[in-house]
Write a protein that binds this DNA or RNA. Structure first.
Lengths: 204, 204, 204, 204
DNA sequence: AATGAATGAGCATTCATTCAT
DNA sequence: TATGAATGAATGCTCATTCAT
């Protein structure tokens, strides 16, 4: 019935509004913070009526969830695809790190939502941790383990902890970039992190 | 419990109440999240009337600020003191990392406030970044620079970035510890971080 | 049930939809109450789109009005017809009472709407009082007056008040029947009311 | 500490506000209907802030409940007291009927709430039926049964039904009085109801 | 200093109604 | 006629903060 995906005339409208609301929410959340953002603001920014928001999302909170889910899905799908073409574990981690910062660096508002707004509640953190985030850490970890098996990385290291260390370092780069008054490129920071990290974990 | 404390004649009741409110707030914020926590809850937990809270703090937000400020002051003072007795830069960083996780690991509620609640608003993050946090990063950074001057650490590394990397890695250990369902000791994680970090930054 | 009705060729589909909406509304109002009932629920129950409801009714309130009007019209027409064949005033009142409870007892949902939902607003009560309800009371009253003229009923009684008394007693039977957890036949209650009522108003 | 009941200076204030809100609500509900009445209207009418209403009542609905409960309690207590001094069952029923209409006739707004607003929802009707209302019917019924035992009232009548008939007749008097454009005294209607009722149920 | 009753601004959400198709 | 997506007005309730006592 909808083989060609979105070619039918009614679906795009829907998708457009949903997209518009999501985009508006990212902007609004980034500028005012999740709790201070009013649904009415999001609606206005999206160019729809207040009530329309509720045709696409069950609640304000669901909007936040959706932003996270959609972005994580994209990121992970994108990541997996890139991984397929790379076999060297070091190169893989390098790619992951670059993709991580590229993505956040490309959309400052989205980065704010990810680095700041999504962190503000244990409840959310736990759910979010349980979902896509855990998967992301797993991706890093298994890549590292591959490297350990291949003798590239130090075998005695705990891969789980290593994954957190790399993630934490990248995460801090992103957070600092957002909070910094200075304007600089985020993506290049990946190399500095990788330099130290890989140097620290490589088997000699 | 009261006996020992009420012996100090120069520490009036005032300080006790302030302390009580602060302690209550940490517990309440940690369990309900900053935005969901009601001032009335904090007051009840502290054993004072709602209005009393406002004799010691200008607003709910100021309570959060105070928690951060007081803890950071303590941490930094404590840190500086320990630094005085240590001259080896590697040992210094090792000490900083241990203190960092020791402190958070010793008070789970406080850790939740630090790792989660304090992250939920750009406004707060910026202020908080500007204040004690920047100083903390500076402590790490200058220690690292000392090590570079001493030829212990790789001279070509950007000390500022290096400081963020170490901080980010430790920070992620703390956040994961909070969100984890498993109960384990946080402090020992410092060694694993240090292992990789020092291995990565040490001049060969 | 459908067969007989769809045979009438001059009653277009329109009437069917109107009927369907009315029937759906009775069910929905009876189960959720007028204020809690959503037009969308009625539309779904009737198997039409939300907007379609407004092709047949000006507003949600008008649906309630229509339920009342249509039922009262039917009841009164039905009553008049039956009255024609009866001349004895006592027999007439007996018939009215039986018809009253028969009708409500035959459709519990409709009874709920009549006994409960229609009573919830002075505005409605006044309008509804002004309309068919007043006519119904008048029917009872004039029948009673006929009986007074005929010397059957006590001449000194105020017919208007007497009509209200009979109506009130029957009305209470209906309301109690609806609210009762026990399931019993409503119609037979008419006889018990009539017993006392007629005994009380009959000239000796 | 509060031996003398309400003489302490803090309690009266509370009672005053609660009273004021209740009184205001009766006025507002009577004029606008329960659903159309805004809590803000009640607050303004009572001379308090919106939020104050919630210091005394959990919700708008609880206000309606309280109006009913308080009035029924009063009415029943009042009734019982009067009953003690009367032994003749006919006189008792006469008193009940008069008290019923006296009370409603004395406060038109309260009467509107009782006769109209309280009837508008099955949920409420059921609860309200279950509570004080059932007790009221029981009072009428047992009084009637006493009369049956004493040989004053026809023994073959079902007391439960008889009670509903009397109540229904009185109730209709009250409802009609409210809806009527003409202004007349409600209380005297009791005699007309009693005339027919007692004539109808008295043993010959 | 301490209290806690009172305040009132603020906001997510619902739903009757409309109207372009 | 029929649809159902879109609208936006409307409001109960919360809670940080104040202030009379």
């Amino acid at each position: 019935m909808r083989s060609a995906r979105s070619l039918s005339p009614d679906r795009p409208i829907v998708a457009d509004k949903r997209q518009a609301i999501l985009r508006a929410a990212i902007r609004i959340f980034a500028h005012n913070g999740y709790f201070s953002s009013k649904v009415a603001d999001i609606a206005r920014e999206a160019g729809v009526a207040d009530g329309t928001v509720y045709l696409y999302f069950k609640s304000k909170e669901e909007i936040l969830h959706s932003i996270f889910d959609r972005s994580m899905e994209e990121a992970i799908a994108d990541g997996r695809q890139r991984m397929e073409k790379i076999s060297d574990p070091r190169e893989r981690l390098r790619t992951i790190a670059h993709m991580h910062l590229d993505r956040l660096g490309a959309n400052r508002d989205l980065a704010v939502v990810f680095q700041v707004e999504l962190r503000g509640s244990t409840k959310f953190m736990e759910e979010f941790s349980a979902a896509g985030f855990a998967e992301y850490l797993k991706l890093i970890r298994s890549t590292f383990e591959d490297g350990q098996s291949a003798g590239v990385f130090r075998a005695e290291l705990n891969a789980k902890v290593v994954a957190k260390i790399l993630f934490g370092a990248l995460d801090e780069m992103a957070t600092n970039w957002i909070l910094s008054k200075r304007r600089y490129k985020l993506a290049p920071m990946a190399d500095q992190v990788l330099d130290i990290f890989l140097n620290g974990v490589t088997a000699k």
